[in-house]
């Protein structure tokens, strides 16, 4: 029953995240005047939530403080390394953090679940550091093409367009591979890599509507909060 509730909450959150992109697509497609847009938004929100009562019920469940946001780790050293990894910026992992994580991961402990959670976070941190470097290199290539003040803005070359599309597919596939019990890690990865995806999105015009999934709120660290649900 708890798993069903969690999956329904995750599905509702995903639907709420998708609906602004659908609205923007509808507005762009039909070239509707601006006065009609505020009316369309509540209708879509009501349709997505399936009724006011269910929406408020979902909101009440989402704000419950009894839900565990982080896995329970009983070993204090493993927990310290876990929290340090979650708190650090994954653009460049400091050496002291890597040493601490390696020592905690190779320690013989009876807390297998906590150690597995730490290993998952450590793997994600290493992968995000590498893939973040790839995204930064791609962004620098775009900046070199456009010039310092943007005087060379033109059509995108084919190899950069293919690279941007491949980066988007990799990012979305990686985000969707996290299970419902790993939502904390999904949010952290979305915070770290999504910022660099937003940088790519801001430098390209005419991208597909699927890029609406990469929201500013999702990459700002307040994912899943009240502000995002009302957006």
């Amino acid at each position: 029953m708890a798993a069903a509730l969690r999956s329904s909450c995750a599905a509702a959150r995903r639907l709420l995240r998708i609906s602004p992109a659908a609205l923007s697509t509808l507005t762009a497609a039909s070239s509707r005047p601006a006065a009609v847009a505020p009316l369309a938004r509540p209708i879509a929100a009501a349709a997505v939530s399936g009724g006011n009562n269910a929406f408020s019920w979902n909101l009440r469940r989402l704000f419950s403080s009894n839900e565990k946001h982080l896995p329970a780790i009983s070993d204090p050293e493993v927990e310290s390394a876990f929290k340090d990894l979650m708190a650090a910026s994954w653009t460049g992992l400091p050496d002291s953090l890597v040493i601490e994580a390696k020592k905690a991961a190779s320690k013989a402990t009876d807390d297998k679940a906590g150690k597995e959670a730490l290993l998952n976070v450590f793997r994600a941190a290493e992968a995000c550091e590498e893939f973040g470097g790839v995204l930064v290199t791609l962004r620098m290539a775009l900046d070199d093409l456009c010039g310092i003040t943007g005087e060379n803005v033109g059509p995108l070359p084919g190899y950069i367009e293919d690279a941007v599309k491949s980066a988007y597919k990799r990012y979305m596939k990686y985000l969707e591979s996290f299970g419902p019990e790993e939502n904390y890690l999904r949010k952290k990865v979305e915070n770290e890599l999504g910022t660099k995806m937003i940088h790519l999105k801001m430098r390209c015009s005419g991208v597909g509507s699927e890029w609406g999934k990469i929201t500013l709120i999702g990459t700002s660290g307040i994912s899943g909060s009240y502000v995002e649900l009302r957006a």
Partner: peptide
């Protein structure tokens, strides 16, 4: 520094479009 999992290997797999970045 740690053995990568399956999804991390899928994220960092060699790609023809991303090879030069």
């Amino acid at each position: 520094h740690v053995e990568l999992g399956a999804r991390e290997k899928a994220l960092l797999e060699e790609d023809t479009a991303l090879k030069r970045f």
